[in-house]
Design a protein around this nucleic acid. Structure first.
Lengths: 311, 311
DNA sequence: CATCTGATG
DNA sequence: CATCAGATG
């Protein structure tokens, strides 16, 4: 059903996350505070899983769409680094140019790399790493996309790490055409890169691959993040020699999401989407110990995810 | 000294209210909350003053630049009506079109009138009145200014009430030309109106008339609100048969301001400007009991002012 | 519902 | 240092 019109573009109502609205919720004067900080002490960050051949993890990578670095910092988002203590930490939607980075973004023990596009306050990705990469490259090598600050590649001894913030298809799918260009460009880029070393791709892929990956698949088939076009893009990527580590390890697990709209208390009701992934080259599969969703960690409308490897 | 350039316009540093900045105040992570609500119980709203010929007040008018009606409501601005209980209450900078007025703006015992311009979230004036006016007119009758929602005229039995939100001359005085058109138009309008009945003009005149009317006259002579041009406009108005009631009653009173920038804790240091006025036709002067500044009342960067009359 | 910018004051 | 709109998610 239609709620607004803007020019000739039909804007569909996705504000209820595809659920039917039964009441007209006016909420006058009932503005509530969302949960912003995490109770880290109650979260178990340990991991006793191992690889198929029984090797325990010795390398950890985390990723988080922070939805605005400056706001996330105020919500103590960096605390996550202390408790999770990953070797590599990838951030998406930093929305903060390097010159405006607050000083606390310098963290002892990590090298930091940042990429912003031309548009202020839009997109942007970042990378914290304990081991200095052999090389860091910015962007896909495609002008249209690289002006937006969506991808960093860090070359390590044994693999490439790619942080990505995939373009959102937008309200009314206005930017689905952009996305349809991005997806094959990314695949092409990864194919070239993968010829040299295995790849660990992480970040906000802005798609829930299958019905199991979101709470309301039926009502969201024409909304950004669950169109057939976007889903097909992910299917194609996975066919080209990549593994969705989480779904590989937990093929039947329901209710596992990494994003919840701020609207309608979606997070407390777990009305969410799995949009954030660790996707690795097939040949890295034997080294994966676990792929976990830190759904108890607050600080943005996404939660962090962590990959544990034996390297 | 110059802090920013924008195109060819030189933007002078008025963020310190004309004071010299001695320290580079970084204030990282020290975001403070401003005082937003008033302790009405500690404020004396009584008035024992009378007219020259000893008559006590029986009619009260208040005026307040609310700086955004919706935010002001959240800060309990309407509480002021209960404690002050004026016969007429005038608002400026409501920045709220009539269709978006929150329901609590309907107040028992008052008729309300609102005017917004074409630009959403900009300017706007309002009027609460216990006695229904004989007529309410919107605007000055000049297209350029009336598209901005800056003036309401209410005709009563014995006088005209004019609520005005005078155009700000802007950073770098970019809108001083607009102001220089407005001032004579307003005087012309008041002259016509005054031929029929005496006038009570109130609102944010966006000028401190004399040096006594602001904390930092020396450093603000080329800033909006204290240019010679704006001051001359007020001088001319007062020469044409109008009285600045506050300064008439308190010709020597210093530190009497109605506006303080939110920047640099100006209000707590009383680094302010007198920008809000009750200006009446000379022939109403004998009926004025008092003209007061409610500087203890919070809710915007301006405080309310009140005029007490014997009608 | 929340984040940003940019205009405005 | 605030408010608001509008874009974006």
């Amino acid at each position: 059903r239609k709620t607004k019109e803007k020019g000739n573009i039909e804007i569909v109502d996705i504000e209820s996350d595809g659920e039917e609205k039964t009441k007209k919720e006016k909420n006058v004067g009932t503005k509530k505070m969302n949960q912003t900080s995490s109770d880290y002490s109650s979260i178990d960050f340990s991991c006793n899983k191992s690889t198929i051949d029984g090797k325990t993890w010795n390398f950890k990578i985390s990723s988080w769409n922070v939805g605005g670095l400056k706001a996330w910092l105020k919500k103590d988002g960096l605390q996550f680094l202390k408790y999770e203590n990953p070797d590599i930490f990838c951030l998406q939607e930093t929305r903060c140019s390097e010159s405006k980075l607050p000083p606390e973004t310098k963290v002892d023990g990590y090298h930091a790399y940042w990429l912003m596009g031309d548009k202020e306050g839009y997109a942007g990705v970042g990378l914290y790493t304990k081991v200095k990469p052999l090389e860091v490259k910015y962007g896909l090598g495609i002008k249209e996309h690289d002006s937006e600050g969506r991808l960093i590649t860090a070359e390590y001894d044994k693999f490439y790490l790619v942080v990505a913030y995939v373009p959102n298809a937008g309200r009314g799918l206005v930017t689905l055409p952009k996305r349809m260009k991005w997806d094959p460009e990314l695949r092409k880029y990864l194919k070239q890169l993968g010829a040299k070393k295995p790849i660990i791709l992480c970040g906000d892929m802005n798609v829930s691959h299958q019905s199991i990956d979101l709470a309301n698949p039926k009502t969201n088939t024409r909304n950004a993040g669950f169109t057939q076009e976007e889903r097909d893009g992910m299917t194609t990527l996975l066919k080209e020699g990549f593994v969705d580590t989480f779904r590989h390890l937990y093929p039947e697990k329901t209710g596992a999401y990494t994003f919840w709209t701020y609207m309608g208390n979606a997070r407390s009701r777990n009305v969410g989407w799995r949009l954030d992934y660790f996707i690795v080259s097939e040949r890295l599969k034997p080294q994966v110990c676990d792929s976990v969703i830190r759904s108890q960690v607050y600080g943005s409308d996404h939660c962090p995810i962590t990959l544990l490897l034996h390297m």
